[in-house]
Design a protein around this nucleic acid. Structure first.
Length: 221
DNA sequence: GCAAAGATTTGCT
DNA sequence: GCAAATCTTTGCC
């Protein structure tokens, strides 16, 4: 793409189907953060998790339609940001048709552009220790930190090219990602089969996957 | 109105 | 390898 051009919006139709299909479609896509006066931050999505419906005992929708989960019942492509452990924000993309509560958690990005802005946004975490470029957004809390995302962004339309936080399709000619699957992280509170469902999807071999190396491989999906 | 637990990351032992 | 930091959301009395 040429300098200054605007990448096309991510197709909403690719998010309106089953949550796992949407999760696969998001791998390789771009997340773009635009803040006036600062360079655009762009990251390639390399790790996601699917949270599908009120039946999913690991999903925030497991209690039904509450104040927090309400946005998950909305239009596919809507942003859902929550605060976890009282300190980290996590970005989700609402999926499936309206009235069906489902979302995909964006767990890790490969930095593409605006790396300096990401490093600045990470703040003391990058100042007090060595953080390689590839690791700037290598975890769900780090994605939000590096891109300056918080709960005020809940409700944004990620499929709107004019939104300050949005999605764009994988660039033309980009290789088809080699997708692997594992159980979701941090959902030990859920009962089976939800706890072990292989709904964490990742791009094999990416240097930006979350967690220890032992958890960065999966089974072919 | 209160208590418990959490879709994480970091730093110290 | 383990525990702390920190506060919102939800369920129950």
């Amino acid at each position: 793409m040429t300098a200054g051009s605007t990448p096309p919006p991510f197709p909403r139709a690719a998010l309106a189907g089953p949550c796992l299909d949407a999760a696969r479609a998001l791998l390789g896509a771009l997340l773009i953060r635009r803040v006036p006066g600062t360079p655009d931050r762009v990251g390639r999505i390399v790790e996601v998790e699917a949270y599908a419906g009120e039946d999913d005992a690991a999903s925030h929708a497991r209690f039904g339609r509450t104040g927090r989960s309400r946005v998950m019942y909305g239009e596919p492509g809507t942003a859902y940001v929550y605060l976890v452990y009282g300190m980290h924000h996590c970005l989700n993309v609402v999926t499936e048709p309206e009235e069906r509560p489902a979302a995909v958690l964006i767990r890790a990005l490969e930095p593409v552009a605006g790396l300096d802005a990401m490093r600045t946004a990470r703040g003391t975490a990058t100042a007090s220790r060595v953080v390689r470029n590839a690791r700037l957004a290598a975890g769900p809390g780090l994605v939000a930190a590096a891109f300056g995302i918080d709960r005020s962004h809940t409700g944004l339309d990620l499929c709107d090219a004019a939104s300050p936080l949005r999605l764009a399709p994988a660039p033309a000619g980009a290789p088809v990602p080699d997708i692997r699957a594992t159980a979701r992280i941090g959902v030990g509170y859920a009962h089976e089969p939800w706890r072990s469902a292989p709904w964490r999807l990742l791009v094999a071999g990416s240097p930006s996957l979350s967690g220890p190396a032992s958890l960065r491989t999966g089974t072919p999906a």
